[in-house]
Amino acid sequence: MTHISATVDGTHRQGEVEPRLLLVHWLRENLGLVGTPIGCDTSNCGACTVLVNGKSVKSCNVLAVQIDGAEVTTIQGLASEDEWHPVQKAFKECHGLQCGFCTPGMIMASVDLLTENPNPTEEEIRDGLHGNLCRCTGYHNIVKAVSHAAAEMSGS
């Protein structure tokens, strides 16, 4: 067992883990943060996307021991006490989801994209989110939601 500690959604967390434990399993099973789903076995779908030190990663493709000392943000750490994050609100307002399975990862990947590019074009949004698969929406409303959130966040 290996000792790890990390800040997860603003809270200091630590524990003994087997080196083979995936980050997504640490979040879901050890910390009970089941807002981050697992959608595939091949690191393709992006449903499990979280931020590590502010950058998106697929948490099924990272070992828990690799994030020792890091800051992790999951979908459950995005909203403030009484208000949703603008990207969360935009997904609701633009109907950017149907079954919702891809949504936590889609939102985290969108937050990551908007951090680097606060005003993306439609093409840049599609390119920026291509590591996240959605089987329901056909992506149009997801793209709309990200544009909407970008405008909201830049105050226009």
Partner: peptide
């Protein structure tokens, strides 16, 4: 290469 998340790691 791949996507943003994969490129980050």
């Amino acid at each position: 290469v791949a996507d943003r998340a994969i490129r980050h790691r």
